[in-house]
Write a protein that binds this DNA or RNA. Structure first.
Length: 901
DNA sequence: CTCTCCCGCCACCCG
DNA sequence: CGGGTGGCGGGAGAG
């Protein structure tokens, strides 16, 4: 036996060695992988390796030589063909070898290696996706990516360090620890510095500040961006592109904004950045570029920035001559920055489809409302939290009641009015929105934002502080970008979608009819996505299936499938992944794919997702591409997602309802989208666009970064809504969907009034497994609640993330909380919805896995309770939330709700 | 092919 | 002036 093993190893190991430093820590990882592989395939070592690797997940770290049998199995199991494997090996080999030789000297064996190694092993073991393994085999580029490195870097420090504790960062130490050259650390640190997450204190020394001041920093950047008129510039550039590929620099500033104020940008925050003369080296620094890049997102209505536009703007500002090489260089830098920002879960990669084709772009998934919040708010201490929660819960409860009371009679206006009323009543209320974005005086989103900030603050002191150990900081962070919303890596935005949407929106009814869902009860979809991404997913039964026509439209609209995503950001273990997934989690997504543990880093998140999801589900939903399926599908089916939709809906809603109603519900973001200057954005907004069905609902989103609640109201229900223009769609039965987000936990809840009998058909394919997962954002921050009109179906079992417990539960309501989590642990068979493929709830994060059942009850109750309890919990962090939240919400709810009547 | 973006040379600039 | 920083762009992996 041994002999065999050795032989295999030898064969296998060699190639790896070449690639990696064999003995070196880094290499070690790879080697391990290889080893495993080797054992797997006794026959041809080389080929086997790759193959094995892919499948290894199953294998334990031990990976010792395994019996050949397994190999055979695996091979079969593996998607990879021998040929493919060989190719892989071969391709990897030569280059690797070369690199290897070089690297040997370069690499420093570091602990890091060990870590990496460990991680890889774990991944292998746990991991399902072949991809990971594959990657691991050889140190793929991804493994060495800045994003991954950044995640590791961030994992070292608490997102919200206690004020008392000072964390200093030694670049040398970090570099060694992470096993990379210091040069790479500079890239990370510079971007972090631009956001004030760190500050340089001395040579080679930085202080870690964490995310505490991130909202403030972003606000400042947003302000600066507005001053710089970046939005106009972006719009201008985009227009130009339509006309010409070439763009001229001169025009950009026509508006009169001063030439380079770049230096000022830096000033805003600190003295750190010395204003330098234009074009100075500093102006070109990654720090400044990073700030500008962020500003572009912040001023963008669509929150999507294409790299080419960003690069052009940067070039213009730098007053450099716009040659192609410059452009390329800028883009490279932007990728560097984007990788870091993605690791921070502030942005995620998407693709914008344009006439010219797909363009790489990034979407802001971080907090959005900070702009509206005051500094005061930032400082606000915990006390406020309860208030906010009440508001939110109250609103939710109200909705629920309404629904319950009359199945579709819910009037969104009333709700909105109520909210406004409240807001108005308190002049000082933080809830008021400052922004003029929409003219909405108050937005839930803003509330959420406030809430979130508070939470953040509190969190610093408490949980987070202690939690370094916690799952990756990022994921945990409340502040973390709502990103959770965006589960998937990429979205495609297509212009068309916009057009389509309007019509779609109006009519949910039509949809339901078409889908067949209508009859049954409504379909409950949930879709809430924060930034456009769909938050909710419905169980299969619940899944809303857009009528064929709609689908077609959607599909058409969407570009191709979203690529694999980009989303890796979340990656970092919990962070990225969590963030992304959770919110949106459209049921579909979740359904299709199960997430891997957030822990994994995924630089390659996108890939994973892809693989995770099957195309299958998507297919159902979307005509378009299977590949995206996961993303698309889920969103599509379950909920309306995307800004576009949202916008549409909003606009539609506004029209119908009148502003008042909408106001209450609409979040700032929503508004923004509607306006999009950017052509692309509007259309696409991700996967969500596709779903017209979503239109039916009015989506109330909390501000993006925040953990606000997202509420989906069915348009049909609202009387006003009836008037909706578009119309053909029959209103869905679902009155409203509330998606609480973030802070609470990520517990998505789906209540579907009636089970979608008809709908099921469509859905069935998707979910397959059944369980629809709503992915909670990694953190579990977001919870989605869907309330079905009349009859809620069964509550699904879901595991709640520790954090969210509160939200979850609307037991009484019949709501079923669905958790989706990064993991994808969803169970297909999960009980949800009684037999239906219920969405599975995952709570990967939750430290303590709760049993769905138990959780459910608890949560449910909790959910409605008054926030009072929340205050504590919130702070605590995710874990505690569950229990606490419960109480206060209800109280609040009732009060507010009353207004409706 | 295009998109990404790693890698590390070498210029800056600070202490 | 030495060394920390970090701009820069070649070139290769990934798709």
């Amino acid at each position: 036996m041994e002999v065999n093993c050795l032989t295999l190893k030898d064969l296998i190991s060699r190639p790896p060695r070449l690639d990696f430093a064999i003995e070196d820590g880094e290499n070690a990882q790879k080697e391990n992988i290889f080893v495993d592989l080797s054992r797997m395939a006794p026959k041809t070592p080389i080929k086997n390796e790759p193959i094995d690797l892919s499948k290894q997940k199953i294998f334990t770290p031990e990976r010792n030589p395994i019996t050949p049998v397994k190999l055979a199995d695996r091979q079969q199991a593996e998607p990879w063909t021998p040929t493919a494997n060989l190719k892989m090996l071969i391709s990897a080999a030569s280059p690797d070898i070369r690199d290897r030789e070089k690297k040997k000297g370069l690499f420093r064996p570091i602990e890091n290696k060990d870590n990496v190694f460990t991680e890889s092993l774990q991944l292998d073991v746990v991991d399902d996706s072949a991809v990971d393994e594959f990657e691991k085999q050889r140190p793929s580029r991804k493994q060495k990516s800045l994003g991954l490195l950044c995640q590791k870097f961030l994992a070292r420090y608490p997102s919200y360090p206690l004020s008392t504790e000072k964390t200093t960062i030694s670049l040398d130490e970090v570099a060694v620890s992470l096993g990379v050259e210091r040069r790479r650390i500079y890239d990370i640190v510079n971007v972090l510095e631009s956001l004030h997450l760190v500050s340089r204190v001395a040579k080679n020394q930085y202080d870690w500040h964490g995310r505490h001041s991130l909202p403030k920093t972003l606000r400042n950047l947003q302000r600066l961006g507005e001053e710089q008129k970046y939005e106009e510039q972006m719009a201008h550039l985009q227009q130009k592109e339509l006309d010409l590929i070439d763009y001229k620099f001169g025009e950009r500033r026509r508006d009169g904004y001063p030439d380079s104020q770049d230096p000022q940008l830096l000033d805003f925050s600190e003295a750190d950045y010395p204003s330098s003369s234009a074009n100075s080296r500093k102006d070109k620094s990654l720090r400044i570029m990073s700030q500008k890049f962020v500003m572009l997102f912040l001023v963008s209505k669509t929150k999507i920035v294409t790299l080419d536009v960003a690069a052009k703007i940067l070039i213009e500002e730098s007053q450099d001559t716009p040659d192609h090489s410059k452009f390329k260089t800028k883009v490279r830098r932007l990728y560097d920055i984007a990788n870091v920002l993605t690791s921070l879960t502030l942005i995620k990669k998407v693709h914008v489809t344009e006439d010219r084709g797909r363009k790489p772009a990034f979407k802001w998934i971080g907090p959005v409302d900070f702009s509206s919040t005051d500094d005061d708010l930032m400082d606000v201490s915990t006390p406020i939290l309860p208030e906010l929660k009440k508001e939110i819960y109250g609103h939710i409860q109200f909705c629920a009641r309404q629904k319950l009371a009359r199945h579709g009679s819910f009037n969104s206006e009333q709700a909105s009015e109520r909210i406004q009323r409240k807001v108005n009543s308190e002049p000082s209320s933080p809830y008021r929105q400052k922004q003029g974005s929409g003219g909405y005086s108050l937005e839930i989103g803003s509330l959420a934002a406030v809430y979130r900030q508070k939470i953040e603050d509190s969190s610093k002191a408490e949980a987070f502080a202690s939690q370094r150990a916690m799952p990756p900081p990022s994921s945990l962070d409340p502040a973390a970008p709502l990103p959770s919303l965006c589960v998937d890596s990429e979205y495609c935005v297509s212009p068309l979608s916009c057009q389509v949407l309007p019509a779609a929106q109006t009519e949910s009814k039509a949809l339901s009819a078409q889908t067949g869902l209508s009859g049954g009860g409504g379909v409950s979809l949930a879709a809430a996505a924060r930034d456009g991404e769909p938050l909710v997913a419905a169980a299969e039964p619940l899944l809303y299936v857009p009528p064929a026509p709609l689908i077609m439209l959607c599909g058409g609209l969407q570009e191709g499938p979203p690529g694999p995503g980009a989303g890796s950001a979340g990656g970092g273990g919990s962070e990225g992944a969590a963030a992304e997934q959770p919110p949106v989690a459209s049921g579909q997504k979740r359904l299709s794919r199960d997430r891997k543990p957030p822990q994994e880093d995924e630089a390659p998140a996108t890939k994973r997702q892809n693989r995770d999801h099957g195309a299958g589900p998507l297919a159902l939903v979307m005509p378009k591409k299977p590949s995206d399926s996961t993303d698309i599908a889920s969103p599509k089916t379950s909920a309306p997602h995307e800004d576009t939709l949202m916008n549409r809906q909003l606009s539609a809603a506004k029209a119908v309802l009148g502003k008042a109603t909408t106001n209450g519900f609409v979040t700032s973001e929503w508004e923004n989208p509607s306006r999009n200057t950017e052509i692309e954005k509007p259309s696409k907004e991700n996967e969500s666009t596709k779903e017209p069905s979503l239109l039916q609902y009015l989506y109330v989103q909390s501000p993006a970064g925040l953990n606000g609640f997202n509420v989906l109201l069915s348009g049909s229900q609202s009387p006003h809504a009836v008037g909706l223009p578009v119309g053909p769609l029959p209103p869905l039965s679902v009155p409203c969907v509330v998606v609480p987000s973030p802070t609470l936990g990520a517990i998505p809840v789906l209540c579907s009034p009636t089970v979608p009998g008809p709908g099921s058909s469509a859905p069935s394919p998707l979910p397959n497994a059944g369980p629809v997962n709503f992915g909670l954002p990694g953190l579990g921050s977001t919870a989605h609640l869907l309330i079905g009109p009349a009859a809620l179906v069964n509550p699904k079992s879901s595991t709640l993330p520790s954090t969210d417990p509160q939200l979850q539960g609307p037991c009484s309501l019949h709501l079923s909380p669905v958790m989706s989590r990064s993991h994808g642990s969803v169970q297909p068979g999960s009980p949800a919805y009684g037999g239906h493929p219920a969405p599975a709830v995952k709570s990967r994060q939750s430290p303590v896995p709760v049993t769905p059942k138990s959780i459910r009850c608890t949560h449910q109750e909790t959910f409605f309770k008054t926030p009072g309890s929340l205050g504590d919990p919130v702070l605590r962090g995710k874990e505690r939330n569950q229990s606490r939240s419960s109480s206060s919400a209800q109280r609040r709810l009732e009060i507010p709700s009353g207004g409706a009547d």
